[in-house]
Each structure stands twice: as C-alpha cells, then as structure tokens.
Nucleic acid binder design. Structure first.
Lengths: 335, 335
DNA sequence: CTGAAAGCGCTTACAG
DNA sequence: CTGAAAGCGCTTACAG
C-alpha cells in the first residue's frame, strides 16, 4: 500500500497536523520532531497527494491550454514555451487540441471546468461568443496568445500583426521591389487575416504603389493553400517580382509551386514569409521571414495567467517585438 | 459562489446521496425525483468536481505523457494521436517535455506521482534505470511509444525499425542503386540508432553489396546534423548514388547540403528519409521516405495504457506496419 | 511546540 | 426509493 500522511504520523509518533506542518515548511515544531518526521517520510517512501491537498486550498496548479492544432510548428513552439515556464512556476499543463471545432472546444471547456483548472490559455483561437459565455460561468482567468480580444478582462500576448506585415512588405520595397503580390490568410480572420492584409496595403500606399486586388490570393495559412494561391497568382498576374505570404507554410507552398513551374527563387521571384518556424530554415533556399518569439510568447502567456490566478487582478495585454529574419529568398533588385 | 452537490440537494429537497446517484446514472430513485434533481442542477448551473470525485474512486482519469521535445513534427503528431484518443476515452493528458534531461524527467515523474496520474506514456525515450526505479515505486502502468524495453511489464508500440530500414535500402537497390551511403542516428541509440543501421547493413549484405564504414556518417536525427553528415560523406566518398537517412530531418538537411554544392536531387543523388513527417512533402523535391502511422502510434499507446489501468493486466507490445512513401527524391537508375 | 477536530466535495456501503 | 454517515488524504483554525 502507498503510505498516507496518517501512516507517517503513526510511525513517527506525532499527529498528522505536525507532519503536514513540516511537509509545508510551516513553523511550530522542534528540530528534533522535524528530523524524526523527515526520516520517517524517507524511510516509508511517502509522497504527498496533490489531489487531496487541492481540496483544501482550492488550487490545482493546473493550466488548460487550448490549441487549434498541435501538429504545426507554430503551435508546438508556443506549447514548448508554455510547458517549460509552467514547470518552472510549479504548474502543470493540460493540453487540449480543439481542431478548430466548436463542439470539441466546448467539450474541453467542460472537462477543464470539472477538473478545476486554475486558468486557461487560448492559443491562436478566436474567442467565440459561445466560449465566452461558458468561460464567464467558470470564473477562471483566461489569456490569449497570438490572438486578441476586446474585453480587458481577457488579456492577450501577440505581435503587432499589421506592423509586422507592414515591415515585411517595406523590406521588399527597400530591396527595390515594386510589383509585390500577397498570399493572405483567411479573409475573415480578425487576427492573422485582416491585419496582415492591411499592413501590406498600408506599406504599398505609403510608398506610392497602387494596390491591385488581383495581386492578392487567399489561403488558410497551411501549406497546400499556399501552393494553390501561388498558382492562382501566376495565372492572373504578370510582372510580379516578389510575394509576401502570411505564413511560412504558405510561403513554402508558394515556393514549391513556383519551382515546379521552373521559376527560380530568388532569381526570378522573391519570397518572404511570416512566423519563422523551423521549416523556414530547413528548406532550400532558406526562407526570409518575419520572426516571432514563439517560445517567449508561450512563456509570457503563462506568466500572465499565473499572475491573474495568484493576485486575482487583471493584467495588461502585451505586444511582443517581431523582426525580419534575412535568409536567401529575397533578391536585391537595386544592384 | 460555485454550487456544490450539497447546494443542489438542499434546493431539490433530497439527500446528496440521491443527487450523486442521478449524476452517475445509478439506480435507486423515482423518475419524479430524477426530473427534479436534473432541473435543479440546470437551474443552479451545477457542475461536478472531478477532483473531489477522485478521492473516492482513486482514478484521476489523467495520463502523463513524457516527450523528449514537443517541437518536432514527429512528437507533435504522436501527441495529437494521444490527445485525441484520450479525449474519446474520457482521459486528460498532462504533457511533460523532458528535453532529454534526466533531472527534468525525474522532476516530472515526481510531479506526476503527486498528481496521482493513472498511467504514463513515454514517447521516444529510453527508460533509464533511474526512471524505472522510481516508476516501480509509483505502481502505475507505463507504455512506451516508438521505443522499446525488455521488461514485459512495460509494453511498447513501435514499428520494426530494422525491417523498415531494410525495406528502405532494399527500395533503393530495387531502383538500381548499389553505391548507397547512410546517415545514421546516434550510434548508441538502441531504438532508432542501432536497428536502423543494422537494417542498412543487412539489406546490403543480402544483395551482395559490401558494407563500407566510410559510407556511414552519424547524426542526432535533427536537421543540422544531417547537413553536417552529408558534408562529411561528400568529402570522404566518391561514387555514391543514393543516401538513406535515419530521419526525415536529417534527410532534408542532407538534401540541403547537397544542393548548396550544386548536386541535384534526385538527378545526381537520390535520397530517402524516415518518418514521413509533414516536412517531407513540403520541400522541393518532395522526399521519398519510410512512413510510420504517427497518429495511430499515439492512439495505440493510449489504448494500451487505458487497458492496463482499467483491467490491471499487462498487455502485449505492438509492432505497427510501416510503408515506403514514394515521392520525388529517388531516381530510377535502371532506365 | 503539539494534537483533536472540522471540513474540502464527493461516493458508497448500510439501514430503512 | 431514499437518507444518514463514514471516509478518501489532506489543511487549518482552535485549544492547550
């Protein structure tokens, strides 16, 4: 049988209250008692039961993390950041793969509620009305990563998508490109769709380059859609020298489509992506892209949610810096 | 305040025992009582506390999953399979990123023990003696995925690495290749290192091709090491027409190294990988590789661990089938 | 410095 | 069909 605190108390000839005290480093026992208790604990191989402890202090030290998919590098890097920092802070992580499915998400929220998690992190997920309603009744702190939200009670951690996109296009312009197409994300996506397209438009506008809707093709951020979008672009547009894709996967899909048609990157066509996932440096030529501090994004989200859990106060949102990671897919046209 | 079973009982004018019964679908109440209780539960927005329930039935319905790293596609695909199937079976998953660090792993095992998880899945991890000792005292079922182990009490789920490797090399031979190099994994690795190298040797031997140790370079399964290994191979060997890499990441690294030296794949050099992660079809040309059913591997592991949890019996290990996924990186020399 | 006791939110014999 | 009570493994006032 696995020993309980009661067994230790009996064996050490003290009360369970005393064992509990030395276990939790409280005061109120002689050094002699302490030594005796510690020795007994070791001898018996006793380990406290975190579940029983929870019943008293109402903290499970568990965070639920909702992901639309774990099988992409973006999510898994953020997850790693979350997981690492949570461990440092003494919290555990319950992963929930929503598969962008509302029912599944609701089911998970139900599970998280019953398991009495202390807080929730939503990664790359839009907080639907349906979720918020449920969340409201759960009375648990929520933080969004790489997503945003109007309600100040739900802080978020993300880069400035419009600005990052603006900077990417600006980078192409600085390299002498004027005929720039974009492979945008889902048109309705309020996080990575609309703002990134807006950044593209703004950068063109600020540099006196007219916007042409035929130079924009839409994908869903995944590989296949990037390939398809590139094909569409190639059919309807001539003279494009550079493409900005709203995700690295789409950028790589686009490169692939181009290369299959004998178009060389970057000699014939420059490409810049968005995310800086590992894939971007594993392909040939290595992809120039917009870098987001993915691990840090995860760590910051954990920090915020734990602060909310432990202080009960709302914390402010955070915009983390992005950067242009220069590699080999953008040709300098000015030379 | 969040209502408890006691509040529901009071409101519905029944005992908590009765509420508990209808909650758990047991027998022993009239339909009228049932309706009254259900209505009260809904009106009050009551949700059972899974933690409190655990204290009675000793099941947390939680599985701990140990990963050497979540940031690679192999792990995240397996994790997805685990997570999906665990949800279906009513279990939650606690992710633990060991970072191949013994201390970290021990710390995690400690956490899992205190949290009273019902079972553990080790993914791609060798069960060190140190871990086993601790695990023994935990008295919890353990299953390995993509790893193996002599102890019958710890079943595993994996492909036959030697055979899969044999088949990959055999595939190259069937395409007319004779000068085949290998980028092997860590030499001491008993799972993915030794057996895959052995498969290579066996396939050469069975086809009358002499083995040359200078045609083997070693990596650590990751991208960079594949690149480095390819460079080594290219320096010390001439006449190689094909390379078999023990992981897709290394295969892609190798392709990259070759392409940077102007060597074309597959025209000048054929490459075959191992894993069939998404990356393998996102590069150009798309990588021919050995496919493992990653999601299924995860699901099978969950199935085994839950069976062990619920029946208390040991289950047999499982060898899952592999396949050669033909894409564009192997040239047929016979034509 | 130490212990007896109540209580956290449930489940489960047991009795009626 | 229903309820009172014990108990799961802890923590925490309270009393001494």
């Amino acid at each position: 049988m696995i020993p309980t605190i009661r067994d230790v108390a009996r064996e050490a000839n003290v009360s369970i209250a005393t064992v509990s005290r030395v276990l939790n480093g409280l005061t109120g026992y002689s050094d002699k008692t302490k030594q005796k208790v510690i020795k007994t604990i070791e001898d018996m191989g006793y380990h406290p039961n975190a579940i029983a402890r929870y019943l008293n202090n109402r903290r499970t030290q568990t965070i639920g993390v909702m992901f639309p998919a774990v099988t992409n590098e973006f999510s898994s890097a953020v997850l790693q950041g979350i997981e690492e920092y949570a461990l440092e802070r003494g919290y555990s992580v319950l992963v929930c793969n929503t598969a962008v499915d509302g029912n599944r998400t609701m089911k998970y929220l139900q599970v998280l509620r019953e398991r009495q998690i202390d807080g929730i992190i939503f990664a790359s997920e839009v907080l639907k009305h349906e979720y918020k309603q449920m969340l409201d009744t759960m009375q648990v702190p929520i933080v969004l990563v790489s997503s945003k939200n109007e309600d100040p009670k739900v802080p978020f951690v993300k880069v400035d998508d419009r600005q990052a996109s603006y900077d990417a296009v600006r980078y192409l312009i600085d390299k002498g490109h004027k005929d720039i197409a974009m492979i945008a994300g889902t048109p309705e996506d309020p996080i990575a769709g609309i703002p990134r397209l807006q950044g593209y438009k703004d950068a063109l506008y600020d540099n006196g380059i007219p916007f042409r809707s035929s130079r924009v093709a839409y994908g869903d951020f995944h590989y296949d859609s990037g390939q398809a979008a590139m094909e569409t672009l190639l059919e309807q547009e001539r003279g494009v020298t550079a493409v900005f894709a709203a995700s690295d996967e789409m950028a790589v899909g686009a490169m692939n489509a181009a290369m299959q048609l004998g178009i060389r990157v970057p000699e014939d066509l420059s490409v810049i992506g968005y995310d800086n996932i590992r894939l971007s440096r594993m392909i040939y030529p290595a992809l120039t892209t917009v870098g987001q501090p993915l691990l840090q994004l995860g760590r910051d989200a954990v920090d915020k949610v734990i602060t909310m859990i432990e202080t009960g106060k709302i914390v402010p949102s955070l915009i983390v810096p992005h950067e242009i990671v220069e590699r080999q897919t953008v040709k300098d046209l000015r030379t």
